[in-house]
Design a protein around this nucleic acid. Structure first.
Lengths: 210, 210
DNA sequence: CGATCAGTTTATCAATCGATAAATAGAGGA
DNA sequence: TCCTCTATTTATCGATTGATAAACTGATCG
């Protein structure tokens, strides 16, 4: 029925964009063991053509990383978290609502987990970034909001970091449930709000070192 | 150097045990695409011997599931959570300390994630169990501890479930960080205690429907 | 309108993987 | 000690997969 898909001749730029876009979806679905022939089929091209644009499969995978993880980081988040003209609760809500909208996607969550399971160092590098650019800021602002010594006077404790990890995990795990376990997860914004209320109500005890 | 590993003739029962034990570790490391030849090499046997004990690779994978997930559930947990002779905080601490010791292992966490990413229905089934045998109990006990209507008078809300999911995620994610992202995570018991303090201090607002 | 360049396909290789059949060898019993 | 049973290995098949080389074809320019 379907016509045998006439040969489409595209400019290299466009073709490369199409390949990367489809590869992101494809590897997010099947993991990095997904076969190049199947990817080519989805693109409506033949498998050897992929090798005209990427020397090896690994090079294509590498490109997918960059596309999904590096290009989606928003530097504005760091400013947002430190904008003391608003109460901290409001800032955290604004940040995690936006962050979850970017991160809690099929591609991001699954590729991140696939990458971790395969032992690539990308996760570590991303999480180091997260720690420095987000966790440390949050802890700093929390101390300020509760009139405690800033980190340069009293070093950040393991338990403070773990407290923030708990909040972060509760939110990120929504994506794991939705996109990896295939569970229905709706109204993410209101769940984010819930987790933030629990965190902000519960965390003073930790800051007090109780 | 190493002698070519003399042929060891084992009873079928013992050999099967060895295969299953090693397969658990092996698939947890490489996922279900791990190759039967490599698994056989680790066992010090040849690859066709695997097929004397399991008709297909899938059958072996299925067996691994049962071994790791089904056989590690402890029915005592359900009693523990409902033992009203102790305060709820104590019960939750005892439960999550024990649960995390069973679940937060290299094999459990990784196999669960591999299984989810591959789209097997096992995760859904396990999580249904968890919801019924743990989450509902916790919510019931929380309401009791805060003098609220029991679930058979006022149905469990989405947000109550999500609150418990948040706690659970914070704890399970310790395993994800340790065994999937390969991060150092130490003193799990004290982190569990921390998450429970935050949860218990923070959750009354949610119960009040605030 | 024909030549040329490059985007795309066809054909195919070499390695890998799950699986099967036949040959081998270790252990217990008569 | 030898025989028999079966646990284990050797040899190999067929399908799959990443990758390469050569042939094909569509678009642009003179």
């Amino acid at each position: 029925m379907k016509p045998p898909e006439a040969r489409r001749r595209l400019s290299p730029d466009l073709r490369e964009q199409e390949i990367v876009r489809e590869a992101v979806k494809f590897f997010a679905e099947f993991g990095f063991e997904g076969q190049t022939r199947e990817l080519a089929k989805r693109l409506g091209i033949t498998q050897p053509l992929l090798y005209r644009y990427f020397p090896t499969k690994d090079a294509l995978v590498e490109r997918v990383y960059q596309e999904v993880f590096l290009r989606r980081w928003n530097p504005f988040w760091e400013e947002l978290l430190q904008d003391r003209s608003k109460p901290l609760g409001e800032r955290l809500t604004a940040f995690y609502r936006d962050y979850s909208q970017v991160i809690l996607t099929y591609e991001w969550v699954r590729l991140f987990m696939f990458s971790g399971l395969k032992g690539l160092d990308f996760n570590t590098r991303y999480l180091d970034l997260l720690r420095q650019r987000v966790f440390d800021l949050i802890i700093n602002e929390l101390r300020l909001a509760h009139s405690r010594k800033p980190p340069d006077e009293a070093p950040i404790t393991t338990m403070e970091i773990e407290a923030v990890w708990g909040l972060h995990a509760a939110i990120f795990y929504l994506g794991v449930r939705k996109f990896i376990y295939n569970m229905p997860v709706e109204n993410i914004n209101s769940i984010v709000d819930l987790e933030l209320r629990i965190f902000l109500d519960g965390v003073p005890g930790t800051l007090a070192g109780r």
